[in-house]
Structure formats: C-alpha cells, structure tokens
Design a protein around this nucleic acid. Structure first.
Lengths: 142, 142
DNA sequence: CATTTCACTTGCATAATGCAAGTTAAATAT
DNA sequence: ATATTTAACTTGCATTATGCAAGTGAAATG
C-alpha cells in the first residue's frame, strides 16, 4: 500500500471528484489507453502511437502528473540511458474497467472506429480486462 | 435511435477519444453524478447540490454541451415557467457504469468520503447500477 | 404593483492548452 | 575523437478555457 496524499487539497471528499481531478482532462486517459492497449512505454512512443497528436509540453506535464498521482512510474532504460520507461502501477492497471466502460459507452452511442476491440469487450468484458491486466502485470513496477 | 452527429469533427475515431471529448473536463461528470445520485434536475439544484461549487457560467455551458451531445434534455417545468427540468436520456443513463467504476477506483486508491455508497457499489455493482437506472427511468425523456 | 426567484449573461482576470522552436544529455556514425 | 542523431524534454508566446462578481429579463409570489 502506497501512502495516500492530498485528500485535503481536493475540492470535495467525493470519490468521483477525486477521479475527475486526476483524470478529468483531454489527455490523461488517452495516454493510459496507449499504455494499456498499444504497449506505449516511452515519451516518443506516446507521441507517435496516438492519432490525436498531443503537444510535447502537455505530454511531459501529464506524465509527471500521472507519476505524482501514483498511476505510473518512470525509470531509465538500462539499455539506453536517454530513455525513460513508463510503467503502470497497480493503481494505473485498476483503471482498466473505467477505460473499458468508457469505450463501450461511446461505441454504443457514437459512430466510432476499432470495432474488433469493441466486439471483444462486449463478448467478454471481464475476460478482456483480465487479459489487459495480465499483459501489463509482466511489466509491473510496484 | 437518435441521429449520430459530429464523428467527423473528432480528433480521432477512437471510442475512448469520443468519451473524453464529451466528458473529459472538470465538471461534466460531477453534474451527471448530481443527477444520478442526488436527484438534481434544475439549474439551482445543480448549483446547490454539489460540494464543489461550480461557477454559474460554467454550469450553463456544460448543461448546453451535455444537451447538444444527447446526454441530457431540457424542458420547462409545466408548473413553473421559469424552471427548466433537465433529464438524463438513455445515453446519459448508460453512463452509470462509467461513474460507478470511477467511484470504485478512487475509493480503492484514495482517501475519500461517502463510504455507505461505496459499500453498496462493492457489494452488488450490477444491482446498484440497475437501481440507479430504475429510479431514473421513471423520469426518462426519450 | 413590488419584490423575489430562476436561469442565465457579461466583463474581466487567471489558468490551461497548443504550437513552434530551442536545449541537454546520451547514443550512434564517421 | 568528433559529428550527427535521437530522446526527452523546455521555453516563449498566442489562443482558449475556467473562475469570480455583478448584472439582466422573464416568470412567480407577496
């Protein structure tokens, strides 16, 4: 169990508000998607793996915030000292159900792409989440 | 089935991106929480029901955006012509699982309030969501 | 009628986001 | 050994979003 900080500086004690303060912006969840579903682990991988083209300063800021909030950790690549490898913590991996529900909701009500992914989620939601967590657990940073 | 607009103006076709574009800000999900869990239905109820104290111009803007995105609808109160009664659409009610997962995630990893709610969600997540939808269905606006 | 309530707007200050260009350290190529 | 490239950022500046206080107009209430 990690230490839990900053509950005091929150706008309210509501758990949903806590989630919104950590994730309620345009980019954080997309970065986590790229980690969970596309295997992105470094700065340039984040820049290139997403369709949405995040600005470099925003990416740097979001990575630092996610790290500060205990959702990801960073350590330098032992084989290349320039690279930082970002990894989801348990807290970060526990967001898989949130991402899944958001994807399923949008897929139901909007015209979106990536139908194979959605089929997979619909057919076996729990299995899908377990598979994501399983893949990520191999690279887990406690 | 309602018409589906604006998929073209999205930053990407990814379903998660669609969710983030509609809900990824500081207030939208908190407004939906107040509708789902606290029964807020009018402008002043939103202003007063939440701990977080949203600014009046932001509230007006978010209500219009949620309406534009088909998540809520507005109609004037037949008993009081000044009041607008906001109601969740089916699309809006379908966000109950998203809100639930976000609450459960924050409750697991942060120090938050409203423990009775969280207990209820943990004990029977599906039942909880069904109960919320059931309560809201009575006031459904198609 | 006069006042209050309701659902907003408006004006303005501050903060967040976005874009292009620059920086630094480490790795690779010559 | 030096030069170039790559990775991970910063910085400066313009644009957009958010936040606060005050104001507005229509409908309801006293």
């Amino acid at each position: 169990m990690k230490k839990k900080r900053q509950a005091a500086e929150r706008r309210s004690p509501c758990p949903l508000n806590a989630s919104v303060e950590m994730l309620g912006d345009r980019w954080s969840l997309l970065i986590l998607r790229d980690m969970m579903l596309r295997g992105a682990r470094t700065y340039t991988e984040f820049l290139n793996s997403s369709f949405e083209k995040i600005a470099t300063n925003i990416l740097a800021d979001r990575l630092h915030r996610l790290e500060r909030d205990g959702i990801i950790t960073a350590k330098t690549d032992p084989t290349d000292g320039r690279k930082l490898i970002y990894t989801l913590t348990q807290k970060g991996m526990d967001l898989a159900p949130v991402l899944t529900e958001m994807v399923l909701w949008a897929a139901k009500h909007e015209r979106t792409g990536n139908q194979p992914l959605i089929q997979q989620m619909r057919q076996d939601k729990e299995g899908f989440i377990a598979a994501v967590k399983g893949r990520l657990a191999k690279q887990l940073d406690p």
